[in-house]
Design a protein around this nucleic acid. Structure first.
Lengths: 203, 203
DNA sequence: CGCGATATGTTCGATCACGAATATTCGGAT
DNA sequence: ATCCGAATATTCGTGATCGAACATATCGCG
């Protein structure tokens, strides 16, 4: 089997679309129910669920034949609820997309990286203060994540918590790195810090 | 001084806007020149620079008074080049925004996290194969980043490379974590793996 | 029973993002 | 001289995004 080296452009790129397809694997649902299911399963911490986007995404999935209308319900006087089911093409797209995401790291642009690259625009003392604050915040965040995880272990198999464990690991990694940076900044050992300070103090 | 606990909504949220303001600190420029400067300084690895977005962003910055037209050049027959400069309000917004980004971690949604949370949709053996491939890819990526860094150390002060070091650190952290996950999956020690397999093999 | 609060569902439109197209100039090879 | 590809510089149309508004149902409680 030949693995395509360049990722092909997908017809839908919103991650929510993938989450929707996976959810519909569990059976036909209407959009709102999809959102509820995702939330109930805690997927909303790893995928941004936006009602605004949800309906558009489902529509687009239908347009491309990945889902189809399975039923149109009407209970009482409420607006109709269109129930969607996953198609064969949908299942295939889902598997392929998910596989690609797992196997291939993609370059993303976390906002903290941007901020770091622009660090020079602040006074070095200010930078140190701010990064110290970040470390504190990260510690709180990590503690929260650990706590949540402990609770969840009691009711959910680990399999369904991998992404939470990953999050925690990455939070810890970030904390560690920022601590290292702070150390170098405070010791002034980092090449270029004197120049930086001088630049900001004279202009 | 009271630190606002909730981040106030910014008039501009595109990170490119921040990068633009920081660049204009160095002096007035026209949009294209801003992009060149960012690229020359390697900022394009940490901020997504999109020509399509650039002009819109600069316009919006102007609309909100963060930059202003400093000059309109015309050389030969080319289209006019509008040269922009940072305003006082712009400098303030820049400092405040950058400070917030450094001090406060924000929840983002990296696509790999989504993929992890949906892992159960694939057969466990398939998941293992794919994650092994990811580890290989991550190793290549890390090697590349390390190489680039070595080269850059020769010509650029460390201060301007912090974001690259951060990237590398995070790549390594991710690799380590995926390796751990793989180990657990292969050993079958992870709670729930048998059920997972069974589910996929019977349907 | 009547009231507000909360949960259930969906739609809309203003804004945003960005690939691709456009248009000109410059440098170097022929 | 002239042709061509790369660099310079900007615009535009399409499509995505998402907060907020809308509308109804259900539930708890006095």
């Amino acid at each position: 089997m030949v693995v395509p080296v360049a990722a092909k452009r997908r017809k839908l790129s919103n991650p929510l679309a993938l989450a929707v397809m996976v959810t519909l694997c569990q059976g036909p649902m209407h959009p709102y129910e999809i959102a509820q299911t995702l939330r109930r399963q805690g997927k909303d911490t790893s995928t941004k669920i936006n009602y605004g986007s949800l309906y558009t995404v489902v529509q687009n999935l239908e347009k491309h034949g990945f889902v189809e209308v399975a039923d149109i319900e009407r209970k009482g006087n409420r607006p109709e609820r269109t129930v969607y089911g996953l198609t064969g093409a949908g299942r295939e797209e889902m598997t392929e997309w998910l596989s690609e995401l797992l196997a291939r790291p993609v370059k993303e642009f976390p906002i903290f990286e941007t901020a770091l690259s622009l660090l020079g625009a602040l006074h070095p003392d200010e930078a140190v203060t701010l990064l110290e604050e970040r470390v504190k915040n990260l510690e709180v965040q990590a503690a929260g994540e650990r706590g949540a995880l402990e609770k969840l272990y009691e009711s959910v198999p680990r399999l369904f918590l991998v992404e939470v464990e990953y999050q925690l690991h990455m939070t810890e990694a970030q904390t560690e790195w920022v601590r290292g940076l702070l150390k170098e900044l405070r010791e002034g050992s980092m090449l270029g810090v004197e120049g930086w300070r001088h630049f900001h103090e004279t202009g």
